[in-house]
């Protein structure tokens, strides 16, 4: 379970104060595949970073007893000067996994061929996303955070990714930002709406999408 206890998050950009979360207490219960919806700029990505533990709340507490991935679709975690292999080994090491095994899995999934030996700065954004996705699948998290999975690669790779993710959520769960109803129906069974700095929980996707269309 990932729990938010009276979490407030504000940003100061120049002199403008932006309130992302206002005193939110909420539990992302284990085993639930949760869709996160909200209008552009509501702070969905910030919410993901709070869940991932890579950003601290302004006040309040975020606790988790699951291993949580970094937000996927976000490839900022790679170092452009290092090769694909070096980046993969680095991440495997900090998560305490056997870097040879992880590398083998990533090689097979990402299908980058010899490019995996080149610096990441030479990759296209699709190649980076493939590497990041493959790496996160290889690490076996309890909870996958997915920020707008924009389909990467060609049709065959899209199908492969879809299948891999579907397989994954038999043993793990996802918390996913998406605007696409179809994607949400494919992977999620419940959802939250981030609206006016508050979180609203929906047991069924129909009423979530209805409210999303009404308010956002």
């Amino acid at each position: 379970m990932i729990a938010f206890d009276t979490v407030t998050k504000t940003y100061h950009v120049k002199d403008i104060k932006k309130l992302i979360l206002d005193d939110v207490s909420f539990a992302f219960e284990s085993g639930k595949n949760i869709a996160v919806m909200g209008h552009n700029g509501a702070g969905k990505s910030t919410l993901m970073r709070l869940i991932a533990g890579i950003e601290l709340p302004t006040s309040g507490l975020v606790t988790s007893d699951e291993t949580v991935s970094w937000p996927l679709g976000f490839v900022g975690g790679f170092n452009g000067l290092m090769t694909g292999i070096e980046n993969v080994r680095f991440v495997a090491r900090i998560y305490g996994h056997d870097s040879d095994r992880i590398l083998e899995d990533v090689r097979q999934f990402a299908e980058l061929g010899l490019s995996i030996e080149l610096p990441i700065s030479t990759y296209s954004s699709g190649m980076k996303a493939r590497l990041a996705f493959g790496l996160s699948l290889a690490i076996n998290f309890d909870c996958y955070l997915i920020d707008e999975i924009t389909a990467v690669g060609d049709r065959r790779f899209k199908l492969k990714s879809k299948k891999a993710l579907t397989d994954k959520i038999r043993t793990a769960r996802v918390i996913m930002i998406s605007h696409a109803e179809k994607t949400i129906h494919n992977y999620c069974d419940s959802g939250v709406l981030l609206h006016n700095s508050k979180l609203y929980y929906y047991d069924d996707l129909k009423s979530l999408i209805k409210d999303y269309q009404k308010f956002c």
Binding site: A52, I54, W70, F74, G77, F78, N79, V91, I94, Y95
Partner: peptide, 10 residues
């Protein structure tokens, strides 16, 4: 090292 902040243990 901004990129490293993707990983919560760092």
């Amino acid at each position: 090292n901004k990129a490293l902040l993707t990983y919560p243990m760092i």
